[in-house]
């Protein structure tokens, strides 16, 4: 038995280069690793927005996430700072396929669950350099993917939008870690092929076996602004209940946000 294994191993090693994943497998896996780790997840986020004059604004919030079927997800975002949005909550039901997300904002002073019209996903998230799409993930079907380069550490993927007039970039490059499949850097190029925006995972840790971004930076090179997200208290597979993502727990925030 042992001798047979010993014989097979070199063969397997030889076979590995041929088993390189296809570009579709790479982007699928990267999407899974960055947005769907575990059955559910939780993170505290401290977001620091730097303007072009060096002034800063800080947002603190807790995100709860629950995966559904076929890529559907629910998000609960509870704001802790700044003071004027404190204890507001943002609820998103993301569906499989093309269907628009359902989004609600909870306004505690009015005890009001306000429905938000579906918006352009390339709109700034809470005034930062991150976009809604950076937070909830861009639908893979919106771009064509091409493996531009394979380095020692990364797969470099060039993503070209199928409907270029709906977005502000002409293409973007993503560096995906060959080992963990976690995207480490994205560069966005405008219609003149000029780099104008970057999003980078600046610190990565393995938490409960899942490669996890614990610090990320988005920079708008034209405006001279940047936003840093520092993640703490990250947990996976908490066993979040589906009913947390309902009006009941908007009115009475769940203990998982504390």
């Amino acid at each position: 038995m042992n001798s047979r294994l010993a014989f097979l191993l070199p063969l397997l090693a030889l076979a590995l280069p041929a088993a390189e994943p296809t570009v579709d497998e790479i982007v699928q896996k990267a999407n899974q690793v960055s947005y769907y780790a575990g059955k559910d997840g939780r993170a505290e986020v401290e977001m620091t927005i730097k303007d072009d004059k060096g002034g800063t604004r800080v947002r603190k919030f807790v995100i709860l996430r629950l995966n559904g079927e076929d890529g559907a997800q629910k998000f609960y975002v509870y704001f802790k700072e700044p003071a004027d949005v404190r204890s507001m909550a943002y609820l998103v039901w993301k569906y499989a396929g093309d269907k628009d997300d359902d989004r609600w904002l909870w306004l505690p002073a009015l005890n009001l669950k306000k429905r938000i019209a579906p918006g352009d996903k390339r709109t700034s998230f809470v005034g930062s350099d991150f976009l809604y799409e950076d937070v909830s993930g861009r639908n893979l079907a919106e771009d064509t993917h091409e493996l531009k380069e394979t380095t020692d550490q990364f797969y470099v993927i060039r993503n070209t939008p199928k409907k270029p007039d709906t977005v502000e970039f002409s293409y973007f490059l993503v560096w995906i870690d060959r080992e963990t499949f976690l995207p480490r850097k994205a560069e966005y190029y405008d219609k003149n092929d000029k780099l104008y925006r970057t999003v980078e995972a600046t610190k990565v840790e393995t938490i409960q076996g899942y490669p996890t971004v614990v610090e990320s930076v988005a920079s708008d090179l034209r405006a001279g602004t940047s936003t840093t997200n520092a993640f703490s208290g990250v947990e996976y597979d908490l066993g979040l209940n589906d009913n947390i993502f309902t009006e009941r727990f908007l009115r009475r925030p769940p203990r998982e946000i504390r």
């Binding site: 009015l110 005890n111 009001l112 009115r251 009475r252």
Partner: peptide, 19 residues
């Protein structure tokens, strides 16, 4: 005061904003 006397029940009593 808001509390849950039962798993499927919340009670909120006192001065509150309702909408």
């Amino acid at each position: 005061v808001l509390f849950s006397p039962l798993d499927f029940m919340d009670v909120k009593v006192g001065r509150q904003i309702l909408t």
